[in-house]
Structure formats: C-alpha cells, structure tokens
Design a protein around this nucleic acid. Structure first.
Lengths: 203, 203
DNA sequence: AAGGCTATGTTGACACTGTCAAGATAAAAA
DNA sequence: TTTTTATCTTGACAGTGTCAACATAGCCTT
C-alpha cells in the first residue's frame, strides 16, 4: 500500500512476474493464473506485464521453457552416470521422470499441456529449449539400444516416441487422477521398465 | 429471429444443448465452448442451461460420458471378434485407440483431460460410465495374459495401467502436437504393439 | 374447472478475465 | 540540453460463469 519508497519503474518486473507466476502455478494451478493477479503480486498495474510479454501465452511459455531446461539437466545428470550400469540408469530415469511429474503436476501440465502447444502458440524461445529436450530422448534411446537394453530391431525415433509416450501417459494418468494414484507410482514404473528392457523381470 | 411460433418453453433444451455442445466441441475445441454461446445456439437465454446442468462442468461431464459409452462399445466390438486370433485383435485395438484419439482430438481431450477430472469435479454419472470403461481395460489385459500375448508375470492391474498409459501417452503427444504428428501413427502403433507382445516382431 | 405447485425460461447484476489505446513518467542517448 | 525510448498508468471493451429475483406455462390435486 504505502509505496512511497517505490519508484515509478519497477526495475526488474520481468523476473518478478516470472517468479510470482512460478509460485502461483505450483500452488494454485495453471487455470487460476491470471495476468492481473500476477501484476498485483508484483505491485504493478494490470497492463504493465504487456511491456515484457506479448501476451499471457508468452509468459506461460517462458515458465515452461525454464521447466524444460531444468528437466533436460536432470535427465543428463542421470544419463551421464557412467559408473552405473545402463540398466540401473534406465530404471532411475523412468522413476525420475514419473516422479518429477508427480511432484510438480502443475508445471508438468504446463510444459506438456495443450495450453502452450496448440495452435502453434509455442514461442520460438520455447521451441529452442524443448526440441533439444526431445532430441535427447532419442539419443538416450539409441544408446540403450546399442547396450542391448532396448530392442534394436526398432527405429530409434519410433522407439523413443513409444517409450516416452509410455512415461508421458503414466504421468498424465497420475496427474489427472484417472485410474491411478500416487501409491501406484513405484510399481507402475517397475512394470514399465520391465516391459521395455530385454532382461529378466525383477522381483 | 421471428420466433413467433416458438413457445415459452423450449421442449427439449437439455438434448439441444448437448448436441450443440458436441458439435461446437468437435469444430472449435473445448476452450471456445461457452454456456452463453450454447444458449444462443439453442435460441434461449443465457441462464436457461442452469435448469438442466448444475454448472458448465456438469454439461461437459455429460458430453464426456457419451464419449466413454461410445468408446466402451467400440472396444467391446473389437475384443469380441472371437474368430480373429488374439494377436490381431490386440493390434486392432491399439490402432483403434490411437486412431479414435487422432480423429476426435477435442472429444478425447475432454474425456481424459483435467477439465472434468481435477478437483473431483467428475459427476457421479460420469464416473459410472467411465469406471467400467477402465475396468474393461483390465479385463482385456488379463485375457491377453492368459493367451500368452502379454507377460503373465506382471500384475494385471499394473500391466493394464502401463499399456493403457502407453496408448494414452501416444495419443496425447499426437493431439497436443508434441514431437509426433499424424503421419507417424501407423508406425508408432506397430512399434508399441511389437514391444508389448511376446511374439516375433513384424516386418 | 379452480387453484396451486413445480419445471422451465427470462432479465439484471456482479466479479472476473485478456487485451487494446492513449497518456504519463523516467531513464538513456544524442 | 533535447530527444528518443523503455516502462508504467488509467480508461475502456468485449467476453466469461454464475447468482438472485421474477415470469410463464404445464401438470396435479382438490
């Protein structure tokens, strides 16, 4: 209220908006995320955000981009543990993927939901971060094929789409509360990993 | 306009709303589906729909319920073709599932999207139609396990969640335009089917 | 047939939303 | 110092879902 010390210009509104949005996203979900509330959070008028983002979709894209970047790092970290056997890394990857989605449902929904992807609404910035992320899935798949972990008589791209699709599907069933809940996570991940790997079933 | 012949009461507003909504859904998507427009389509005032549906979510649930009912029938039809070998039926099921999603993206999005499932927003009517649909997936899985098509060392429920998750994930990647487009459908379905089935790879 | 109950439909109003246009301010560039 | 540019403001508009209060018409009972 008493913003006497406040200057006319915010100073770093862009990042203030992003962090406020990220917080609101995690706490109240994508749907209850309005530009006006974000502006209020930042102590700024309703239309100020438009000087930093073309529209609402652009702001959401920026948040999602951060999510993809983080996820890409996490995937890399697991994949690069070369001292661990490939099989263990694959399992870890599966659990990490579904775990990330379960722990950050709103972020996951934003990253992979239609909100920012439909109608080619995705920013170039977003695509530039997301596509390498997708590419990495193919790289990993090819590697696991070479290691004999995944069937090598399938096209790597196709196989990557299917394995990723599986993780994506499990994640979404969990997040949307359809037919599966968080108490099933471990078992579902193990089941999925068993199915894909050309090795004896665990347990 | 000149609705002189119109009576004060619409007569069958509920089904008029549903069919108008189903049409708009397929043509313009879930997001551009407003109660006010639907009311206008039916030639009725903005708040009339509230006498037939508790709120917007209830109307969407009713549409989704129809979708589940239709889908359940389609799945049954494929599954019950007992003259065909189990393997062929499994393949057909996979293609049918992904094909349905690709052909009716907005309906699929509605049925399995968070719009009607999050916050326990799902109507009891919806649950009563959807749950048997989910159950059927387990029934089929168990059958395929018995036929030796799917690994029988996995829990049927878990396996059903994973196989369904895979189809669901592929469908969503397609619908949301992430990383896969419709030209990949056939190959992706074949790849998924090959992966799951305990039989030599086709091609 | 008369009266009343109930289902259905109507207008008015409210609090939201995203976004544009036009003007105000401050900082940076000339 | 003057001018340009980035940033922020208020005002406005068209939309949205939904509640409250009122109007109509059909059915049910007496």
């Amino acid at each position: 209220m008493a913003s006497t010390a406040q200057s006319y210009h915010h100073g770093d509104l862009r990042s203030a908006l992003l962090s406020a949005a990220t917080k609101r996203l995690a706490e109240h979900g994508v749907d209850s995320l309005s530009l006006r509330k974000l502006a209020e959070d930042a102590g700024v008028s309703r239309t100020a955000p438009y000087h930093h983002f073309k529209d609402k979709s652009a702001l959401l894209s920026a948040i999602a981009a951060k999510g993809f970047s983080d996820w890409h790092s996490a995937a890399r970290r697991i994949f690069d543990q070369e001292q661990k056997p490939a099989q263990a890394r694959f399992r870890e990857f599966v659990h990490e993927y579904v775990g990330y989605a379960a722990d950050n449902p709103e972020m996951y929904e934003l990253m992979f939901g239609r909100t920012i992807w439909q109608n080619n609404a995705a920013t170039d910035d977003l695509k530039n971060v997301a596509f390498p992320c997708f590419q990495f899935q193919v790289t990993m798949t090819r590697y696991w094929q070479e290691k004999g972990l995944l069937p090598d008589n399938q096209d790597a791209l196709r196989l990557a789409q299917v394995t990723w699709g599986t993780l994506h599907g499990i994640a979404r069933l969990l997040i949307d509360g359809i037919y599966a809940d968080s108490s099933h996570i471990e078992e579902m991940c193990n089941c999925a990993a068993d199915l894909f790997m050309n090795v004896p079933v665990t347990k």
